[in-house]
Write a protein that binds this DNA or RNA. Structure first.
Lengths: 194, 194, 194, 194
DNA sequence: AATGAATGAGCTTTCATTCAT
DNA sequence: TATGAATGAAAGCTCATTCAT
């Protein structure tokens, strides 16, 4: 991915994101992307090596933004519970604005190790570590489930995805907090974190 | 889908399931499926109208089996908590034996309303109703989160998927119970259901 | 190159030979070849991996035929001079019937070592060894230039090519014998071989 | 072809010559030529109308140089045999220094009659007449094969090309003289021209 | 009913050419 | 005048689908 004009690169990425979110990979033609982005087809290939590369760059781009937005919420001092709540709210807000990323993030790459595939793997790992660290902090305040922080992280991400993915927008304003309660206390109670 | 020789139909479905679980839709060729199933390519078209139809039949088939296996656990008398635990254990066991369905189930059809699309929609709805009913039963024993049984159902399914999807097999034997605890009590405690 | 129906494979090869002889590689489209051969474009790719492969197969095919036709003339007992004369006559006759191979044979492959490239190299080497052996036999009857049989072989092939390539057909009937005289005695005389 | 800066025009021609000698026409991209020449792609089009034009100019340029260098050797008084020997030596030396022209000269244009195509045809004809005249002079000293000077010219050029084209450099110092002997006396003897 | 060679629409990709800077 | 990003027509190639055997 050698971007010459960042603005144009973004143009392409946005167009592709919308199309790939609405249709499956094989249903989206490079012609469509070019038309949608308002550039010629050849231009796509100046910015991305091929269709696969474009798709991966798209996913990486989205995860990077999500990572960046989440990062500030989880690192640094503060009550672990508040951090988790903020983290969830943040993700919900992110997906509210970028609904198509919910679709994109699902795909796991199995293909060869091109530069883009590696980048995708890297950001995925980074992102998952972030969530794991966030969840780990709960252990210090007596949450025994956090003994398996990786499972807890997967559970948290699973809940969020499950809710957002299959609840039609617009989402009720209390959804993020409902998720928080469910994740922290299960089905039992809606009690605050203490 | 007009199956003439059920055995042969199953052969094709199994072959397709494995391939579609390992690669994305557009990466799997009808040639591959035919080879893998040990039949000629033309035969595929005697059993399924086209590639999309085969794919949908596959998903429907998998969800139907999952539904059938889960059904007995959730209907009828019994402690709701036990039912939930059994339900989770059952799903974990199912995916242990059919790991590729975890991949398949993700896809949501957006294409036109063929017979197969409708069948998929029907079984999906049926399945989701099953989980929702199961979760609803928790309300009767004082689980306030069950006031929104649909959200709770999505959360449960999300946790299960999150854990199974990203934890490499073989899965530890206590994973199902960990999921149960997380779903019922959140991060707080590992206490049994009382 | 996996040929299923030899007849159809020949059909394609003939069509391609004519087109490649009339136009350069990059000027001939796969569509043209398909049209000319009376098959669909996809069929070309059942018989040959890609355009390059088709082109190479074509050249190999032609050289193989030339080699086969020349082989009988050069091996076995007999007067070396007669053999050379027959050899030249044979080549002239061959090119009279397959004029486009004169164009094709020029190209030397520099590309990667696919199966076809190797095959081309093999037949080229075989063919050149044949000519070299033929020429070597002249040494036994006191032709000192045959001390460098490889150079002499190149000279012979060069003369033949030079004459045929740039003399418009139909060729005078004595052209083969003129070549023989030139090769054997140079500019000096037209005397027969004794 | 309107050359503005001759130095730059030569730069382009040299770069193109090397690339076209190493790869076939359709394998060489205008990008490659521009990179190799150290100019921008657009600049190529200020000096040549299109790719074909550049290619033809290249060939014409090479043949013109060969013609110029050969011209002095063949015209004017002197022993015809010596002239032929010098002519051969000269060509060998020329190709030693410009090895890629051996590859270029092979191509015959079949495309439309642009100015460049005509120029190529003109120089080719001129060059061939030169060789024919040279060979014709041999008749005066009793070389009967020179009764067909055009054939003899083609034979001479064919021998030279055959040897040089398929003998890897560096070439033995006696190669030019071996060619001379072969052309003048055939396989018979290595005797000098008397 | 099963086969698999043939099909050709439609896709991805290339690259000679243009033109705003 | 030189540049090189943008262009888009044209090419190579794929593969779901068909149908004669």
């Amino acid at each position: 991915m050698r971007t010459y004009d960042p603005k144009r690169g973004q143009q392409i990425l946005d167009a592709a994101a919308q199309l790939f979110a609405m249709h499956h990979y094989h249903e989206v033609r490079m012609d469509d992307i070019a038309d949608h982005a308002g550039v010629a087809k050849g231009t796509l290939y100046r910015y991305y090596n091929d269709k696969e590369d474009l798709y991966l760059a798209l996913t990486v781009h989205g995860m990077q933004r999500l990572f960046d937005e989440s990062h500030g919420k989880t690192i640094g001092p503060g009550d672990p519970c508040d951090k988790v709540r903020d983290f969830i709210r943040n993700i919900v807000k992110f997906y509210e604005q970028q609904p198509y990323f919910l679709e994109l993030i699902q795909r796991i790459e199995t293909s060869g190790s091109t530069a883009s595939t590696n980048a995708l793997h890297a950001i995925r790992t980074q992102w998952f570590q972030l969530v794991t660290e966030l969840v780990s902090q709960l252990e210090s305040i007596g949450k025994p489930m956090a003994e398996r922080p990786q499972w807890a992280a997967l559970a948290l991400v699973g809940i969020i995805r499950g809710l957002l993915r299959f609840t039609p927008q617009p989402w009720p304003s209390d959804m993020a907090d409902w998720i928080y309660d469910q994740f922290m206390h299960g089905m039992t109670t809606r009690a605050a974190c203490v």
